[in-house]
Amino acid sequence: MKIDKETEFFLKNRVKSKAKLHHLLEPNELRQDRLKQLKEDNLTPPKILSVKNIKVKSDCNQDINLRFYFPQNFKQNKKNSVIIFFHGGGFVMGNLDTHDFTCRSICIESKMIVLAVDYSLSPEYKFPYALNEAKYVIKSIPSFEKEFKLDLNNIFVCGDSAGGNLAAVLAINSSKKMTVPIKGQILIYPCVDLTLSMRSMDIFLDGMTLTFDTMSYFINHYLESKEDAVNWQASPLFVDDMKNMPETYIFAAGLDPLLDEGIAYKNRLEYFGNKVTYKLYPGQTHGFLSNSKHFPKSTECIKEIGKAAKLMATKETMK
C-alpha cells in the first residue's frame, strides 16, 4: 500500500503519544477527544463573507442547528447555489465546529452558500433519527429561498464518511422524486455499506483512527438491529434502483476500510447509466479532509470539491 509522508508521520505520532483508539472510548469521551484535537490544532478560520446560525424545528419538535456560510461573491440581487453539508464521525461524533474549517473552505472554493447540518448523534438517537432530520432539512430548503436568494435548481448535497451516507440517501430520494430536486452529490470516502463485508475492511495500520473495530463500534451505536444494515436507507449501496441519480463525485482515500464500498457504489451508479467522477488519494487515510493541519492533501481535495460543484452548477438542469 502506498502511504504519503504526512500520513505516515500522523500515524507514528498517534502511536508514540499512545492515543486511544476510538472504539475504546465512550461516545461522550470520543466527542470530547475530537474537540480537544480541534482546539490543539488551533486553525485560523478561512475568511468568508459571513456566517449565520439558525435553528429549525424538526417533525419531532426538536431543534436542528444549521449554519449558513456565505461566500464573498454573495449578492442579494441574484440566485445563489447551495451545498448542503453533512459532517462525518460515524454517526456518533462531530458537530458544526468539527467541520467549520472544512465548510468555510468549501464555501470559498465553490463560491456557493454552504449549509451545514448538526444532526442528532447516536447512540442517543438511533437510525433513522438523523436521516429523518436530514430529510426534514432538505424539505425545508424552499423556505429559505427568498431570505438567502437560493437557486432551487442548484441544490447539492455533500458529506464525508457518515455524512456521505446521509447525502447519498437524500440523492436517492431525489431520484425517486421523494424530496426536492438535488442536482449533484459530492461524497468524500462515503459509508454506504453497514454490513462490514468488504475486503478493504481488513486495511489496518498502527495509529489509524478508523478500523474494522471502529466501524463495528459506530454501527452498533447507530443501528437498532443487525437487520437494519441491509436497509438501503442505512446502506444506500443496497437500493434496488439507481436510475436517474444526480451527477456524482466521489473522493476516496487509499488507506481506508471504506475504500471498496466507495468503489462498489461508483460501479452501481455507472451500471444504471449515471454520470460519476471518481478521484482516489492513494496515500491518504480516512478522515484526511477534516484534518487539514495534518494532511495537506485536504487542501487539494477541497479545491476539487469546489471545482466539481461549479462544473455541475453550469450544466442545464434535467427535466
Score class of each variant (00 low, 15 high):
T7M: 10
F86H: 00
V137N: 09
L237F: 13
P27G: 09
Q284R: 07
S200A: 03
V92E: 10
K243I: 10
S122M: 08
H87V: 02
H99F: 04
I108S: 04
R268E: 14
F86R: 00
T214L: 04
F295A: 06
Y265K: 08
M208Q: 07
T211L: 05
K47F: 03
N231Y: 12
S81C: 03
C191F: 10
N267H: 14
I141N: 09
S143E: 14
I186C: 02
E227H: 13
K57C: 04
N73L: 01
P27V: 05
V230T: 15
V180C: 03
G159W: 03
D160E: 15
S290Y: 07
V56T: 08
P296C: 04
V92Y: 12
L38S: 09
K78D: 04
F9T: 15
I219D: 03
T214E: 03
S235D: 08
D260G: 10
K149T: 10
A168L: 02
F68T: 00
T285P: 06
H221S: 06
F238E: 12
A308W: 00
E270W: 09
K52N: 01
D160P: 01
K79E: 15
L187K: 00
Y222H: 04
Y249V: 07
I113Q: 01
V276D: 10
K20G: 02
F218H: 10
F70K: 02
P46Y: 05
T285I: 14
V51I: 15
A229K: 15
L11F: 12
L187W: 02
E147K: 15
K149I: 05
N291G: 06
E224C: 11
T248D: 10
K275R: 13
S140H: 12
Q76T: 05
H22A: 12
I302L: 14
L237E: 10
I188F: 01
S58V: 03
K39E: 14
I302K: 11
A168H: 01
K266H: 11
R34G: 03
D240N: 15
D151E: 11
E147M: 12
E109R: 05
E124F: 12
G273D: 10
A134G: 11
T7W: 11
E29K: 11
S122Y: 05
F68Q: 01
